[in-house]
Each structure stands twice: as structure tokens, then as C-alpha cells.
Write a protein that binds this DNA or RNA. Structure first.
Length: 426
RNA sequence: GUGGAUGUAGCUCAGUUGGCAGAGCUCCGGAUUGUGAUUCCGGCGGUCGUGGGUUCAAGCCCCAUCAUCCACCCCA
């Protein structure tokens, strides 16, 4: 019989990896907490229409990447491909944005049926941040400054660069789009194949093309920043000023478009060149129209999402994960003989009570030698031994495993005092 | 969805013109009875991704299929 394997593009995160995830999650939570953001937890499955109405009918995500299926009652459900739509839905459903401001975050798996690749998976994980009810550029700046703090916290600030742009209002985009299409149609022959296709489906995305010929052509194309009016201009300028004053460096990239239909005004991406072709590690923007589009009262909103797999890949590439996150026990307790084992069980419990240290008790038998070997492999700083001698004398043997100090026999009372003093030095 | 590369032990990988399936690491046991991380010896461990085909004989050649990786596309 064929072995059952995980679904393509959906990965197990193994015990060796989970400490890295926990480390990253904790760092992010700490930074979000420092800005007063609250966590929201949402279902993974939503009605299909929610995503169709928010992300945009003609985007690749909705057209061909959603995990959509029929519920038993015939409803069309979809595994969420991103979090913003769910977050907006939840806020509306519970009145969270009614006459009030919200700063929210969430974490969890997203699903897109794409061809897997480095940094791109069918089940992937995002930490998303969304804010509601604030229309000025101050909140845009706060979000970006917050992400910059996170990169510093993680030690990766040198590895990422901020790309910033404004998409203006829908009307401004429409005027620009018309002129852009007109220009590109005159040069349609010179465009790469993908851009010719995009010209019909989503012309703004031609700006994103990696094709050198297309990019050269765009140099003489209409420039979007010539199409934005005073309000959009001021919003963007103020954002830039706030970032300048905060010391956050950025590159204005007028060709940064973003794939989701709901963005307007501010958009940004943090990009690294260390991960191959999936270099966007964090991205977001303003989506003032979305809440209303989904049936709520018009509410300004800005948010972003980080790709956890990509951040972890980057942390590992740059060797930024502290070695200590992999250490899971402080003390490895061993016993020789049934009576000694009974006593060691008691001692281990007492140590956990009194010192708060992580004590792993050897189970599963094996020779003394093999117990020692496991003690070493466990990464514990100390081994704790209990045999006939110790049992008879009412002591335990404390053996340093990581330093050259001698092992010694001490009473349990001395042991707790000793361990407390050793660990309080660190 | 398109293109390229790769699938051999739990992991990393050898495997010659087609001729008995290997190494290192891990794991278990041993090198005078209760001392690990270095050494030495022994052991466990494989439907060679899967299904067909060619052949006296296939890990190796051919076809299909699945998966992984990389790139395109798309995006976090």
C-alpha cells in the first residue's frame, strides 16, 4: 500500500524547527505589544464570496489559487488565501470598528494553490496587522516604523529594504490606467508575453514586469505620480516626512503596484535579495474602500502581512537565530535501580517546584553509559545521578556536562540552593 | 499553469560499459563491574519514489506517473 504523505506544498514543522518559529513569534508579539496592538483570532474557512468581493475577481488568487469546496449544505466555502478579508468581516460582524479605532493583529496559516518553490508554499503562515478608523498618514508611518523596529530586534535590518509608493485614489488610477494602456498598446509588439496578457487583464501590473525590454519601454511611459491630486500627494509627502524623521530609510518605487485590488494610497514592501526570487518578506498598504465594499460603513484602514516561512528562511540564512532557543532542558536526571528511580522522580518534581528549571528525567531504561550519552545529547548543562551509593547516603551527584568542573555529591537541600545560585548568575 | 534539475537506509550521499545494494552520521550493544561529547569493534536499518516496458539479467536503458528543489508566473 502506498504511504500517505503530506499534501503537496504543505509542510510539517518538525520539533527541530518549532523553537525557531516560537522565537520569531515571540519577537513579533513583543514588538506589537510595545505599540498596543491586540490579537484577533479568526476561522480558517470563510464563505467564498468574501474573498471574491475583497481581493478582486480577476486576480490570480481568486481566479486559480483558492482552495474552494462545497459544504454539506451546498454553500461554497474557501480556505482563506489571506487574512485581511476575514479580519474586516470579523470586525464588521462584531461592531469592532463602529465609532472606534482598532489596531489588530492575527497569526496563522493561509492557503494558495500555487506551484511550490523556495519561500512559497500552498499552506503558509502570516502574521497580519490591520488598523481601522484612522485616515491620516500617521498610522501608515506607525506601521512601517513598527516593522523597522522588528527587523532591528531580529538583527536583520541590513538585509531588507523598504519600497514605498502611493497608488492614489481609484479615480486617479483610472485616469492613469487609461493613458498607460494607450501608450502600451502602441508598443504592444515590444512587450514580453506576460505583459501583453496583463495589458488586457490588469494593466498596472505591467509596471511590475521583470522583463528588461518592458522595463526600458516603461521609462517613457506615463508616470503615475503625475496623475495624483493634492490630497494623495500630501498624504504621501507627510508619510515620507514622518519616516525621514524616524530615521527609516526607503526607496520610492513608482512601479510598486501590489497584486490585491483593494489597495489605494500607501503601499509598501520590505524586500530582501537573500532569498532568491521570493524576496518580499512583508508587504501591505492602505485599503480605505474595502470595509464599505464588504457592506460596512466607510472606514479608513491600513495593514500589512509578514510571511513567516520567508522570515525564518532569512533568519537562518543570516544565522540570526540564537543558539539558546534550541536548548530545551537544563538538567538531565538519571537513576540506576528501581529504588533510586523512585527517589529521582521525587527529586525531579521538587526541583521543578523549587527552581523552575527544566528537568528531563531519563525514561526507557538502558545502561548507565547510554543514560549518560542521552544526558549529553539532551543539551542539558547538568546531569543529576542517583544510584545505590547516593540512595544510601541521602545525596545526589551533580555532574556538569558543559564545563570542566568536577562532579560532586550533595544533599537535595544543598542542590536546590546551588542551582538557584548558579542560574541566578546568568 | 510553463520550463529545468533531482528522487538509493531515519539523515547526507556513493554506486563503473546493465552483472550479489554501499559509506558516513544517527540509533542499539561492547572495549574489567557507576560516567557523556574524541577513539576502536560489532549490530539494527533498503519494495533503489511508484507503475509499466526492454533484457538471460535493470538502482543504471525507455515510457508514464507522483514528489522535491530551482526559475517563470504569482505573491507573504
Amino acid at each position: 500500500m502506498a504511504k500517505i504523505k503530506a499534501i503537496r506544498g504543505m509542510n510539517d514543522i518538525l520539533p527541530e524547527q518549532t523553537p525557531v518559529w516560537q522565537y520569531l513569534e515571540k519577537q513579533v508579539e513583543t514588538v506589537l505589544g510595545a505599540y498596543g496592538y491586540s490579537e484577533l483570532r479568526m476561522p480558517i474557512v470563510e464563505q467564498t464570496d468574501l474573498f471574491k468581493r475583497s481581493i478582486g475577481e480577476v486576480t490570480d488568487i481568486v481566479e486559480k489559487e483558492m482552495y474552494t469546496f462545497e459544504d454539506r449544505n451546498g454553500d461554497s466555502l474557501t480556505l482563506r488565501p489571506e487574512g485581511t478579508a476575514s479580519c474586516v468581516r470579523a470586525c464588521e460582524e462584531h461592531g469592532l470598528t463602529f465609532n472606534q479605532v482598532q489596531r489588530l493583529w492575527y497569526m496563522g496559516p493561509m492557503f494558495r494553490h500555487e506551484r511550490p518553490q523556495k519561500g512559497r508554499y500552498r499552506q503558509f503562515h502570516q502574521i497580519g496587522v490591520e488598523t481601522f478608523g484612522m485616515q491620516g498618514p500617521d498610522i501608515d508611518a506607525e506601521l512601517i516604523i513598527m516593522t523597522a523596529r522588528l527587523w532591528r530586534q531580529l538583527g536583520m535590518e541590513e538585509a531588507v529594504t523598504l519600497h514605498l509608493n502611493t497608488l492614489g485614489t481609484a479615480e486617479e488610477r483610472a485616469r492613469f490606467k487609461a493613458d498607460l494602456v494607450e501608450y502600451l498598446k502602441q508598443h504592444e509588439e515590444a512587450l514580453d508575453a506576460d505583459s501583453q496578457r496583463r495589458l488586457k487583464t490588469n494593466p498596472l501590473r505591467v509596471l511590475d514586469s521583470k522583463d528588461p525590454g518592458t522595463q526600458a519601454l516603461l521609462d517613457n511611459a506615463p508616470h503615475f505620480h503625475d496623475y495624483i491630486d493634492a490630497e494623495s500627494r500630501e498624504h504621501f509627502d507627510r508619510l515620507c516626512t514622518l519616516l525621514d524623521r524616524a530615521g527609516v530609510a526607503y526607496e520610492v518605487n513608482a512601479r510598486l503596484v501590489r497584486g490585491l485590488d483593494y489597495y489605494g494610497k500607501t503601499v509598501f514592501e520590505w524586500i530582501t535579495d537573500k532569498l532568491g526570487s521570493q524576496g518580499t518578506v512583508c508587504a501591505g498598504g492602505r485599503y480605505d474602500g474595502l470595509v464599505e465594499q464588504l457592506g460596512g460603513r466607510a472606514t479608513p484602514a491600513v495593514g500589512f502581512a509578514m510571511g513567516m516561512e520567508r522570515l525564518i528562511l532569512l533568519l537562518e540564512t543570516l544565522e540570526l537565530v540564537p543558539e539558546s532557543v534550541h536548548q530545551k532542558v537544563d538538567i538531565y536526571a538519571m537513576a540506576m535501580g528501581d529504588d533510586a528511580q523512585v527517589e529521582m522522580f521525587r527529586i525531579a518534581e521538587e526541583l521543578r517546584d523549587q527552581t523552575g528549571l527544566r528537568v528531563q528525567l531519563h525514561c526507557g531504561g538502558g545502561s548507565f553509559k547510554s543514560q549518560m550519552k542521552k544526558a549529553d545529547r539532551s543539551g542539558a548543562r547538568f546531569g543529576l545521578l542517583m544510584g545505590d551509593d547516593e540512595l544510601a547516603n541521602g545525596v545526589v551527584t551533580l555532574k556538569p556536562l558543559r564545563e570542566t568542573a568536577e562532579q560532586k555529591q550533595i544533599t537535595l537541600k544543598e542542590l536546590t540552593a546551588e542551582l538557584v545560585s548558579i542560574y541566578s548568575e546568568d
